[in-house]
């Protein structure tokens, strides 16, 4: 080894010696970042939900708000009513039932229409797909208040569709053919004309509209990765388009389909504006009741918190059910 090499090696060693404390500083900074991150995430993501849980066991003080407690009275009120066993009410359970009923029907409606749409969209050019995605993202991110406003104008009784029905003579035609009575049975007509507000149909339609772009966006990855040669192979073996859809496409997107339906369902459980605008007050949901109790007319934060917990538990239960279903479906039968 030459002297020059030796010197170079010495310099190398010196560099290592200088680098060592620098590395220690970097390590300390990295540790600090780590601690701050964990603290922030725990404080802001987890603590609010824990507070909801804790306060759900709290006690309402008349006229003053609430106080810390460890009571099950809020849950008792939810399931059997505050004055049980003297009297019982299923008002709040009924609200939970409507929450689930709206969520299930709107999620299914959205997924059934979104699936063929997404499939057709993924068969288009990458450019066309990008245009569709921009359109869908813009509508999905548009505030619920705006879309509800739009549907409200379309469905409201003194403008919109009912006016159009009456003016075009469609109402009279419905009356002549007897369909009008059917619509009345469904709650979609008053004695004089068709009406959509309030009605379960309008509620489900609007809710379904709200999540429809979500359904497309959630199904998009699975469908765009679907190998087109699979369908082509089936075609060469004599399968018609419907057979291809039934035997090739549907089975291969079965898992994302279940997952998407569940996510839509969970999302819809929390819907608020559409319900207050389109649903009959007797058919309001738990989410509406949470709002009423926490910030609305009947201030009772602990009971609102308890309902939030029940909503969250319902959502989690359905997600777990979905996971179980997915695992079952993934297992070869």
């Amino acid at each position: 080894m030459s002297v020059a090499d030796d010197l170079a090696y010495g310099a190398e060693k010196a560099a290592v010696a200088i680098a060592a404390p620098k590395a220690a500083v970097v390590g300390r900074v990295s540790l600090a970042v780590h601690v701050v991150l964990w603290a922030a995430v725990l404080a802001f993501c987890l603590v609010p939900l824990l507070l909801v849980l804790i306060i759900s066991f709290g006690h309402k003080v008349e006229g003053a708000g609430w106080e810390w407690a460890l009571t099950l009275e809020n849950y008792k009120r939810f399931f059997v009513g505050a004055n049980w066993p003297a009297e019982s009410t299923s008002l709040y359970l009924g609200q939970l039932y409507w929450s689930m009923r709206y969520a299930v029907s709107a999620a299914l409606l959205a997924i059934v229409t979104a699936l063929p749409f997404t499939y057709l969209m993924t068969r288009q050019s990458r450019r066309a797909q990008a245009v569709w995605l921009v359109f869908l993202l813009a509508t999905v991110s548009l505030s619920e208040v705006f879309s509800v406003m739009g549907w409200d104008i379309i469905l409201s009784n003194n403008s919109g569709l009912p006016m159009l029905f009456a003016a075009s003579g469609l109402t009279d035609w419905l009356k002549e053919t007897g369909w009008f009575d059917v619509l009345r049975d469904w709650g979609l007509a008053n004695p004089r004309n068709v009406k959509f507000k309030p009605s379960e149909v309008a509620t489900v339609l609007t809710l379904s509209y709200l999540v429809w772009p979500y359904a497309v966006i959630l199904l998009y990855p699975a469908l765009s990765r679907l190998d087109p040669s699979l369908a082509e192979a089936a075609r060469t073996m004599g399968a018609g388009p419907w057979t291809v859809a039934r035997t090739v496409i549907l089975p291969s997107v079965r898992l994302p389909l279940i997952g998407t339906t569940l996510l839509l369902f969970v999302f819809l459980l929390g819907a608020y504006v559409a319900i207050t605008v389109f649903a009959d007050p007797s058919q309001h949901t738990t989410a509406v009741s949470v709002y009423e109790h926490v910030r609305g007319s009947t201030l009772n934060a602990p009971f609102g918190a308890a309902q939030s917990v029940i909503l969250l538990v319902t959502a989690t239960a359905f997600l777990l059910l979905g996971q179980w279903l997915t695992r079952k479906a993934a297992r070869p039968s």
Binding site: V47, P48, L49, L50, L51, V52, V266, F267, L269, G270, Y272, A287, V290, Y291, V294, G304, A305, S308, L311, L312, A315
Partner: peptide, 8 residues
């Protein structure tokens, strides 16, 4: 659900 996180 945003209403739950909002309450929290």
């Amino acid at each position: 659900p945003p209403i739950v996180f909002g309450v929290g």
